[in-house]
């Protein structure tokens, strides 16, 4: 299954999902995941009218599926794909403070996965994801949805969006160009 659509001016999102449900693990899964993300990247770049080599953006993969967010260079953007069943309340509690946890209230079953995805996507958007995620980022609720900011740098903030795709949650964040 392929989903490609414009999510902001000049910014395109593609999610590529293998229809073949194959339970891969270890290095084989990583290889399949990376291939899916590469395919999503190429499709999103084509939709944006960019060559894959010159496109800017973010990619994500999990469980044989891939996602890519492609847009103008200089735009803060990040994407994550989260298996809904994989992120539990225990995961969320380990990475959210009380205010963040309160902000996610009312989202029912997707709250934990969305919190995880927002922080992952934002970590990619801000750069150096391995070190920012999760404690270096703060989720806040607002009238336009959720924002994610770097802690201690209130001027650096991105806006989060999401879409459920079967058993996956695709989460992306965008900053001002």
């Amino acid at each position: 299954m392929i989903l490609t659509r414009r999510v902001a001016d000049g910014v395109w999102l593609t999610v590529y999902r293998s229809l073949a449900i194959v339970r891969l693990h270890g290095p084989e899964r990583r290889q399949a995941d990376r291939a899916a993300a590469e395919r999503a990247w190429n499709l999103a770049a084509a939709a944006a009218g960019l060559s894959p080599q010159n496109a800017a953006g973010s990619r994500a993969h999990t469980e044989g599926s891939g996602a890519a967010l492609v847009g103008p260079a200089g735009t803060k953007m990040g994407v994550d794909l989260v298996p809904l069943r994989r992120v539990t309340a225990r995961h969320a509690q380990a990475m959210l403070d009380v205010q963040e946890w309160d902000a996610m209230e009312g989202l029912g079953g997707i709250g934990a996965a969305l919190a995880w995805g927002l922080k992952e996507a934002a970590a990619k958007a801000f750069g150096d994801p391995g070190r920012r995620f999760p404690a270096g980022l703060r989720i806040a609720g607002g009238t336009n949805g959720f924002t994610v900011a770097t802690r201690g740098e209130s001027s650096s903030c991105v806006l989060g969006r999401w879409e459920s795709i079967g058993s996956l949650l695709c989460v992306w964040v965008l900053g001002a160009p």
Partner: peptide
């Protein structure tokens, strides 16, 4: 790189 871990796996490892 070798075993296919994702970020959430590290949290599971800590658990």
């Amino acid at each position: 790189a070798d075993l296919g871990a994702e970020s959430i796996d590290f949290l599971d490892l800590v658990f």
